[in-house]
């Protein structure tokens, strides 16, 4: 029984970790309508900027945290105004944007390896160990608790923003029909930039939190974005709240697989989920 509880906790932690990039991706997809794979390096940049600031510049973690989030937001925004916005203005097809994203992702990942090496890096040196909390035989660390808490907070905030604020309404308007939104007087480009900034910051935040718990390596980005897209797909592509739920659905499926079958099945389960949902329920499990 204790094992099952610990596995549930593990699934909750992993789900929260997936949720940041899933929500960021879903938010972007709802308005931009293409699979922005370059969110993968944006996700990683949060962690790597944190490493650069805390280890090379020797500044405190809090500054590293802020720098990581701001840096990721800037990176995502730069990619948008340099690549995707101009391509969209020309009426480029989704495939063109996607190929551009693949290019950006490939180039940035290689860049990261040149700068940081391809080896694994921890974000926190062992000397500053975080607290471990014990509940019976279940253990959880402070970083993990924060990750889960922040993910729920972000989920609720995004829901609130979407329903109650002008920003949220404008976003939904563009998601529904960009042309109509433009006609109604909305400065869609400006608004899209804001959405990109927000979602990139979210991705970067996710990168830092995952990095603090698991460390980071350049190959992590691609795996993470594929899993994030899977989560977004499960919950309903473009529905941010769906992405949040999809992330946990995915993490529980994976953890159950590792629990009953074995560690080597983790990746297969993830990708099988992707295929299965693509085949049977491309609209996701939530009603649109």
């Amino acid at each position: 029984m204790a094992l099952v509880l610990q596995l549930v906790v593990a699934a909750l932690i992993t789900g929260a970790q997936y949720s940041f990039l899933a929500m960021a991706f879903s938010l972007q997809y709802s308005v931009l309508k293409f699979f922005n794979l370059s969110l993968a390096p944006v996700f990683m940049s949060g962690a790597y900027i944190f490493i650069a600031v805390t280890r090379f510049l020797k500044m405190p973690a809090l500054i590293g945290f802020c720098a990581g989030i701001i840096g990721a937001a800037l990176l995502g925004w730069l990619l948008h105004i340099c690549i995707y916005e101009p391509l969209r203005k020309r009426g480029s097809s989704n495939m063109t944007l996607l190929v551009g994203a693949i290019g950006a992702m490939t180039a940035l990942q290689a860049f990261t390896i040149i700068g940081f090496g391809s080896e694994y890096q921890s974000l926190q040196p062992a000397t500053s160990q975080w607290h471990v909390f014990e509940f019976g035989s279940i253990t959880i660390t402070s970083v993990q608790i924060v990750t889960i808490a922040v993910s729920i907070l972000i989920f609720l905030s995004l829901m609130l923003i979407s329903r109650k604020t002008l920003f949220g309404k404008a976003t939904r308007a563009i998601a529904d029909d960009e042309e109509v939104a433009k006609i109604m007087g909305l400065n869609t480009n400006k608004h899209l930039n804001k959405v990109v900034l927000l979602s990139s910051a979210l991705a970067g935040l996710g990168g830092i939190l995952v990095g603090l718990d698991l460390g980071m390596s350049p190959g992590y980005g691609l795996t993470s974005i594929i899993l994030a897209i899977t989560a977004a797909l499960i919950g309903g592509m473009g529905i941010t709240s769906g992405a949040f739920l999809g992330a946990f659905f995915l993490s529980f499926a994976e953890t159950a697989g590792v629990g009953f079958l074995g560690g080597e099945w983790k990746a297969i389960i993830g990708f099988s989920m992707l295929i299965l949902f693509l085949i049977f329920k491309p609209q996701g499990i939530l009603k649109q």
């Binding site: 690549i83 101009p86 391509l87 480029s92 063109t96 944007l97 190929v99 551009g100 693949i102 290019g103 950006a104 992702m105 490939t106 180039a107 940035l108 990942q109 290689a110 860049f111 390896i113 040149i114 391809s118």
Partner: peptide
């Protein structure tokens, strides 16, 4: 060799982007 390999990946990536702009 390692840097060269990564530099190649950067070039491939940039090539893809450039081609999307210039000659899709």
């Amino acid at each position: 060799a390692d840097v060269a390999a990564q530099l190649r990946e950067v070039i491939y990536g940039v090539l893809l982007i450039v081609m999307m702009f210039w000659r899709p």
